[in-house]
Nucleic acid binder design. Structure first.
Length: 293
DNA sequence: GCGTCCAGGTCTACC
DNA sequence: GGTAGACCTGGACGC
């Protein structure tokens, strides 16, 4: 399957936009020119897909020779478009970057598209797993969750589980088998609320709700605080929040040659000048060295 | 190999 | 509204 790409799209920049490519079921090659993903087309059909780009064409190869109907192919392409943010309008953001010498590399490298999971649910769970722990532990939790509750789609490659599968497990089981510790009740509550239709996440990517309302909707999920909601907002396509964590604080101090602890208020004040794009500008600045080559 | 300490966000109780 | 303490894990460190 192929998708025609817009001129300002760059696959390696999108894969390398943040750490998601490193969390199962995502995987990427060393040069970030190839992304592997497991995409659930229905409750029972999961496909392992290899995604590459050449010139202005994106190629999706379904592994293991799985046959797809025309409808399933269209669904797969739409999910990939959403994951890679192919249709995201970034010209206004690029114009803003061109005005600042230190950001001119962003439109040149066609950076700024943030990789997201096939579903909002997967993004929320992974973000919950990044809170209050090392990246190594985030990987452990995500790996265990997919391996123990996902469906094996290719050799040792598992789909991301559905909320109903997780909701059937106990708090103790999740703590022991997923190593998610005190996050277990938060994860369970999220999944049970989704199963019982008390909350709905998948429409958030297309929501017309005001930004602040969306933010507080995310904050209403237990385990999603200011940092996690800020970063999830970016994945939804709203860049008003910075999603500051210890690593952003450290990188900000390094880049702006600040000694000692820099307060979050000071960091937020610094990026205020970029208006509704401030979250994305902050991300570009702190990850600028990832895009050098 | 074992024990101790620390870092990492969020929640809740308390002031 | 602001703050302290608990939550849990992996990793670093000292012995």
């Amino acid at each position: 399957m192929t998708i025609q790409l817009p001129p300002n799209f760059n696959l390696p920049s999108t894969i390398n936009s943040h750490g998601w490519y490193d969390l199962p079921p995502f995987a990427a090659n060393e040069t970030k020119t190839e992304l592997h993903a497991v995409i659930s087309l229905s409750k029972t059909k999961h496909v392992a897909a290899r995604i590459r780009a050449h010139n202005s064409v994106l190629t999706i190869t379904v592994e293991n020779g799985v046959r797809l109907t025309t409808t399933e192919k269209e669904r797969l392409k739409n999910i990939v478009r959403s994951m890679l943010r192919i249709d995201e309008a970034l010209e206004e953001f690029y114009s803003l970057c061109r005005k600042s010498p230190h950001l001119r590399w962003v439109p040149k490298r066609r950076a700024g598209r943030m990789l997201r999971s096939p579903s909002v649910f997967e993004d929320v769970v992974k973000m919950m797993f990044t809170t209050n722990c090392s990246w190594a532990l985030t990987k452990i939790q995500t790996t265990q969750l997919t391996q123990k509750l996902g469906i094996e789609t290719a050799e040792n490659i598992y789909s991301f589980p559905f909320p109903e599968t997780i909701a059937k497990k106990s708090d103790l089981w999740l703590r022991k088998e997923i190593s998610c510790g005190y996050r277990a009740p938060y994860l369970l509550e999220l999944c049970k609320n989704l199963v019982n239709n008390k909350i709905e996440l998948e429409s958030l990517r297309h929501s017309g709700l005001p930004t602040e309302e969306l933010y507080w909707k995310l904050r209403s999920i237990k385990g999603i605080g200011h940092y996690a909601a800020g970063n999830l907002m970016k994945l939804i396509g709203r860049y008003d929040y910075l999603g500051i964590d210890s690593w952003v604080r450290k990188r900000f101090s390094e880049l702006h040659k600040k000694r000692g602890v820099v307060s979050d208020t000071a960091i937020e004040k610094h990026y205020d000048r970029y208006g509704k794009w401030r979250g994305l500008v902050c991300l570009m600045e702190v990850t600028s060295d990832w895009h050098e080559s």
